[in-house]
Design a protein around this nucleic acid. Structure first.
Lengths: 199, 199
DNA sequence: CGATCGATGTCAGCCGCTGTCATCAGCATA
DNA sequence: TATGCTGATGACAGCGGCTGACATCGATCG
């Protein structure tokens, strides 16, 4: 309809390109403007010039639109871990991967913060974030097993790494004076070492 | 209606007692029989002799009915941690709390397993479980801070403890030959120590 | 040129969940 | 004993998330 008219005058293809991206952008805007619960999927689709049905063809549910980048993050973690020297201990390999993720987050601090503000304001979104983090931990554990690490060592190292990331990330995003996330991550790994050494 | 009739003949109060418990029981049964998604709240309420509306007065949503016990678990963790000797290190205090939880789970292995089977079959329930675990970790971190432990040590020790619990629990519930959960927990704490010592 | 395809639109419908008001036994209190 | 209040439940309407089924129509391929 309206998109078709635009296309007609522009002489372009049937649909405006990048429907998925437009939906992501519209959703983030609205979640910030009105809050997650107060935003309907119909409103998001409308702002993107699409219909509600199309939204659900691109995203499994109303929450998932905020987590579109988690696949890429998982790949980064797994690849970085795989590239760690064979001699690296499990926790060192995990630390390298988590630190690499930290660098990426650091580079996009503003948008990361914006998104996190939305998530922190809504328990449903926190649930989704937690299961994504659990999925990352599972992927790390898998990658470790691929390097010959046995259970439960692989799962423990992976979970510990994700826990370190969570805690470092939270401090980095909340406290204005902690600007260096990778550094914060390194320090938290050291702190974890100190904490566990005194069982 | 039907409940009123029953009460009339029994000469008891207006409503059958323990509505909440009946709802929990009916829900678990149906989730096992047909699966979580295939069960409607109306069906649960019906089996419990109540209405859908009443279900939502007792539980915030369809998932929450499976997590009614999490409050008691949190209290157990916090109290056990508080009772640990003042001289105990943070991780040792956390270990004591998690181990106490392990004992409780051990005592109810059958019902725990049944419930976990339902959760493992459904991502929505896994999300809820993860946020409950995160809440437990937050409570442990709080309790540690109450003992004077600083951040990020408190959060790290708490998260590590929950990670150990998760991994131990998973192994305990999936492998028939690992019958002793508290023992599994102790061993995982030792393993964590070994893992982190080699950064 | 015609067939097929893929992204989107349209519509009907289920179900989770909520607000609102009614009901009515039990209890307290006059 | 009569009266009024309370708290748990029922009844009902309605919104919004989400899905299945079918229609549309430019692009692409043979």
């Amino acid at each position: 309809m309206s998109a078709a008219v635009i296309n007609y005058y522009r002489g372009m293809s049937r649909w405006e390109p990048n429907a998925r991206g437009r939906l992501e952008e519209a959703a983030l805007q609205l979640y910030i403007e009105r809050g997650f619960e107060q935003t309907t999927v119909a409103e998001i689709a409308n702002r993107a010039g699409l219909t509600e049905r199309t939204f659900f063809r691109h995203f499994a549910d109303k929450r998932e639109v905020l987590f579109a980048g988690s696949g890429a993050l998982q790949e980064l973690l797994v690849h970085t871990l795989a590239d760690a020297p064979e001699s690296a201990t499990p926790i060192a390999a995990v630390a390298a991967a988590v630190e690499a993720a930290g660098v990426v987050f650091q580079e996009r601090r503003d948008s990361v913060r914006q998104r996190q503000t939305v998530i922190d304001a809504n328990p449903e979104l926190q649930e989704r974030e937690l299961i994504k983090l659990a999925s990352l931990a599972a992927a790390l554990a898998d990658a470790l097993r691929g390097r010959g690490v046995q259970e439960p060592t692989a799962s423990l190292a992976a979970q510990a790494g994700i826990a370190v990331f969570r805690i470092s990330f939270e401090r980095w995003i909340n406290e204005t004076d902690l600007e260096d996330l990778p550094r914060q991550i390194r320090e938290s790994f050291d702190e974890l070492k100190a904490v566990t050494s005194g069982t």
